[in-house]
Amino acid sequence: MNSSPIFKIANGIGLVLLFIIFAVPFVWMASTAFKSLGETMTFPPVWIPETLQWQNFVEAWNSGPFLKYFVNSVVVTLLILILQFATIIPAAYAFARYEFPLKNFFFALTMICLMIPSQLIFLPVYLNLSSWGILDTIWGLILPFATSAFGIFLLRQSFMQVPEELLEAARLDDASEWQIIRKIMLPLAKPVLITLALFSFIAHWNDYFWPLVMTTTDQARTLPLGIAMLRQVEGGAAWNVVMAGNLLLVLPILVIFFFAQKHIIRAFVYTGVK
């Protein structure tokens, strides 16, 4: 790397600019969430509200069945996580450690799944779920995501890095395949597992498109839909209330990210035995 002072300064300025580009919308959201309706419309814009309008949050929460949305979001996201791990772990282990007929074909198929955007397949999936009669239920939001091609890929890579001798030692130690997965593979893949859980949680907690397509009543709606509906309340959008809702929506993600950022970084660094 170039280490001349000019390069360092330019590098620093670049990083600051990037930070501003990413951070400003977020800060704006947080700031607006605490403003009065009047303050959201003044020009030049105010960054720090005169008084913090906590009632924005109350108003957002009370403007619809938000408890229902919240429970739906939690149930959907958690069940997706559980189902994904139940399918990803055995699949990744098999791809990483076993030889079986058509292994490469099936792995290629998995990789293709990774490349197809959900917008492309939502119609057939919709028709399929419709024929099962589970539209507008939380199952319609969960089952299409019961596994994750990305998860299989990432975990397979992690499992492949475990030296074969470890598995052989475990087999000599009378361990069953399930014990090998549970006691040796999974603890070694912990950073990857945490990363996968985070990615999946964030994606499905924030997911707007799929619930929008699959739900028609509050019965199965999730938080992102509820927040989006805030905009349509009483004709015009009360941006301070919408932003308060958004802040509520991202709060769990922020909290989790705050505690787990170390793991996300570590997930991409192999820490194996020497």
Partner: peptide, 21 residues
Amino acid sequence: LAPSKRDIAMVFQNYALYPTM
């Protein structure tokens, strides 16, 4: 016979210790 049923123990070149235990 499976490795575990042969009543043998092995020391591996890289020791193959379980790193998380």
